[in-house]
Design a protein around this nucleic acid. Structure first.
Lengths: 240, 240
DNA sequence: GCCTGTGCTGTACGTCGTACAGGGTTTACT
DNA sequence: AGTAAACCCTGTACGACGTACAGCACAGGC
């Protein structure tokens, strides 16, 4: 049985226990297994990351996966921490907090674009990993130079990252599941018969927003609008 | 086989087709089935809403559920629309948009508190339901009296509701899965050995935020902070 | 009267995560 | 050197899940 999750997360740490060297050497390292799982997820989403599929991708039996990882849930945590650790962060330089927050947001959106499955990983144990902690430490520094308190600093970062996550969820899943499919057309058609002239406001605004979505760069426009609101809201609390 | 999802959603609409009256009468109406599913979800989360469990709760066979609903995914949409339709909304009265937004946020938080499983329902087809549309129509009116454009009005509401959803997710899942469990204690203990004195900022802020969570009313404090940021951010775009 | 649409059921398939019991291989200890 | 422990890997199997399919019984329209 593998080591507990925390030790697997910190397997590259200098203070990690070497681990008994008895028995045959593993054909793959923990990092290999996690990397292959990430490749599967990038290609087919989290539903493609089944123990059996991962095993086949590694030319092992399903049960052999459990030599490297305690459970599928643990694997997801390892995957998330892996991409967090290797995330490219735009350096803050001497920029003020507003541009720093913009960079944090943009970097996180980019990450979620390349690894959309991150949106489906919601395990608090991710916070135990070195990648997550390093990311947290770095992003907290976006508010360096302000007089924000510790608790508010955490809350502010959470506020930013929550916004990114929500927006990314809409941005990422739209083109895939998008408005297409004939079944959707039929649904909208019969929906129109039901609503009739009721909910006039909802219809007008919904149509306007929907048509804008068809436009060229509107996902970016909505992103920009939201991010402006986030920063304006924080500005109200930070630097007056 | 049941009618398509849109027709099930609008089953109480006057323009709904009566439906053939041939064959034995159903022992339960669609509303009954949905209501029982919601009861199961309120009690045990979405994972408790299995077709078999729902069937047993209705004293039917598993397959009989499919007489009323086309699939489990459709059922989830019906459940969501049901609670949206019956959601209690604090009337706006003559309040200004800021207090209206506060009421929208509070009402939605209350709804997510009583039905936490709503956080796990993420199906775009929910937008086809009368409850969702009515809710959308009502909440859009929070910005009545402002000079906001249609697209921005939609974006602003989305911004508010996304914040509520993220915050509610943290508020709701904390006490249940909370910091308890001896396995978590062990993890944190060995984590401390790995981090050592690195990531000083993350440790300091994380500890401050973590300890505040243990406090009496801190979930409310974080909620208030975020909601203030949301409204301040919107204020920057609406009424300058 | 029959036909047709409807509610309900029993059986069964494929997929999932994973418990359990081994077997082979390498190192550590006596 | 011999033994035991630790380790990687495998095969089989279980219980849960959603649901396809075929068939039954019942009610109304012709």
């Amino acid at each position: 049985m593998p080591r507990p999750l925390v030790d697997l997360l910190w397997r590259d740490s200098p203070s990690a226990s070497a681990g008994g060297s008895r028995g045959p050497r593993a054909r793959y390292s923990t990092g290999d297994v996690v990397a292959r799982a990430i490749a599967l997820a990038d290609e087919g989403g989290l539903t493609a990351v089944t123990v059996r599929a991962l095993a086949q991708s590694l030319e092992m039996t399903a049960m052999s996966v459990y030599t490297h990882v305690n459970s599928r849930d643990d694997l997801l945590v390892l995957m998330a921490d892996h991409v967090y650790a290797r995330m490219t962060s735009t350096p803050f330089g001497r920029a003020a907090w507003r541009t720093r927050v913009r960079r944090v947001a943009d970097d996180n959106l980019a990450l979620l674009r390349t690894h959309p499955w991150l949106l489906d990983v919601d395990d608090p144990r991710t916070a135990l990993g070195p990648g997550t902690i390093a990311k947290y430490d770095h992003e907290l520094r976006a508010f360096d130079g302000t007089s924000i308190g510790d608790i508010h600093r955490d809350a502010a970062l959470t506020f930013v990252l929550d916004f990114v996550r929500s927006s990314a969820s809409r941005i990422v899943t739209r083109p895939a599941t998008g408005e297409f499919g004939e079944l959707w057309e039929e649904s909208v058609a019969s929906l129109a018969r039901y609503v009739g002239d009721d909910f006039a406001l909802a219809q007008r605004v919904g149509r306007a927003a929907g048509e804008a979505m068809g436009g060229p760069h509107d996902a970016e426009r909505e992103w920009a609008y939201g991010l402006d609101r986030v920063i304006a809201g924080l500005g109200d609390a930070i630097s007056g």
